[in-house]
C-alpha cells in the first residue's frame, strides 16, 4: 500500500520534471504555424514537423552558428573548473592540515576571506572586472573570462574541500609519512584517492556555475568570444523564434544531464562508498 503510494508520487514528480523538456522537444520541431496553432504534441498528427529550428542553430536562416559559442563555453567552463579544482584542492589541503599565521590572521580567517569574496552581488564585481580586463587587454577573450571564472569559483572549491579534508582523519597522512612519503606524496598517493567524493561535488558546482553563467559572459565579452548562454539569448528578436530557442535550450542542457547521469552511476555503483565518510 505504502509502496504503491510512493510509486504514484514518483511518477507525478517525474511528469512534473520531464514535461517542460518534452514541450521543448516538440516545439523544436515546429514552425511558426505549429507554435501558434494551440497546444499539440504528436508530430504528423498535431503539427507538421520541420527541422527549421535545428537548422537555424547551424547558420540557417534567421539563426546563429551555435558551434563556436558551444566550443567557447566548453573551453572556458572546463578550463576554469579544472584550474579552480586543482588550486582549490591544494589550498584547502594546506588550510586543513597546516597552521598559518600572519599577525592575528589564522586559518579560519583565511577561509572566511575566501568565502567573503562571494558575499558581494555580481553587479558590484562587474565594473572592477571590466576595468581590470581592459587594463590587461583581455576583454572579449576566453582567457579573460577564464580568469574571472576562476576568481569566482575558487572560493567555492576551497570551501568545499576544506570541509572535506577536515573530515579525513589526519592520522592517515601521518601514517603515510611514517611509511616514507613526503607530505606531498602523502597528499597525492593517499589523501587524494580518498577525496574523490569531495572533488566530484566541488567539480559539479564549478561546472554548473561556469556553464550557466550569463551575466559575466554578457558584460565581459562582445564579438570575438561568445558563450552559449549569450548566444542563445541573442536568438531572441521581435518575433520570438520558439523553435530555435527550444532546440538551443536542449543542446545547452545536454552536457549537464550527461554529468548528472554519470554522477548518479558513480553513486549507485558504490564507487564512492568505502571511501572516508
Amino acid at each position: 500500500m505504502l509502496s504503491t503510494l510512493k510509486y504514484i508520487a514518483v511518477v507525478l514528480w517525474s511528469a512534473f520534471v520531464v514535461a517542460p523538456l518534452l514541450w521543448a522537444l516538440t516545439t523544436s520541431f515546429k514552425t511558426a504555424n505549429g507554435v501558434t496553432g494551440g497546444p499539440t504534441y504528436l508530430p504528423y498528427i498535431g503539427f507538421e514537423p520541420s527541422l527549421d529550428g535545428w537548422r537555424s542553430l547551424f547558420g540557417g536562416a534567421g539563426g546563429i552558428d551555435i558551434v563556436r559559442p558551444y566550443m567557447d563555453s566548453l573551453i572556458v567552463t572546463s578550463s576554469a573548473s579544472l584550474i579552480s579544482i586543482v588550486l582549490g584542492t591544494l589550498a584547502a589541503y594546506g588550510l586543513s592540515r597546516f597552521e598559518y599565521r600572519a599577525g592575528f590572521v589564522k586559518n579560519t580567517d583565511i577561509i572566511f576571506f575566501f568565502i567573503s569574496q562571494r558575499i558581494m552581488p555580481p553587479i558590484v564585481l562587474a565594473i572592477p572586472f571590466f576595468l581590470m580586463l581592459q587594463f590587461l587587454g583581455l576583454l572579449d577573450t576566453k582567457i579573460g573570462l577564464i580568469l574571472v571564472y576562476v576568481a569566482l569559483l575558487l572560493p567555492i572549491a576551497v570551501w568545499i574541500m576544506v570541509d572535506f579534508f577536515d573530515g579525513v582523519p589526519r592520522q592517515i597522512d601521518e601514517m603515510a609519512m611514517l611509511d616514507g612519503c613526503t607530505p606531498f606524496e602523502a597528499f597525492w598517493r593517499i589523501v587524494l584517492p580518498n577525496s574523490m567524493p569531495g572533488i566530484l561535488v566541488a567539480s559539479m558546482f564549478c561546472v554548473i556555475f561556469g556553464w550557466n553563467d550569463f551575466f559575466f559572459a554578457f558584460t565581459l565579452t562582445f564579438t570575438d568570444t561568445q558563450l552559449l548562454p549569450v548566444a542563445v539569448v541573442s536568438l531572441n528578436s521581435s518575433v520570438t523564434p520558439w523553435w530555435s530557442l527550444s532546440a538551443s535550450a536542449l543542446v545547452s542542457v545536454a552536457p549537464l544531464i550527461l554529468i548528472a547521469i554519470f554522477v548518479e552511476r558513480l553513486l549507485s555503483r558504490g564507487t564512492l562508498a568505502g571511501a572516508i565518510r
Binding site: 582523519p169 592517515i172 601521518e174 603515510a176 611514517l178 606524496e185 580518498n194 568505502g274
Partner: peptide, 20 residues
C-alpha cells in the same frame, strides 16, 4: 629529521588504514 626519513612505525588508538 622529518618523519618520512625516520625508520619509525606506529599503530594508533583509532584503527587507521588506507581506506582506498
Amino acid at each position: 629529521l622529518p618523519a618520512w626519513q625516520r625508520d619509525v612505525a606506529m599503530v594508533y588508538q583509532q584503527f587507521i588504514n588506507y581506506p582506498h
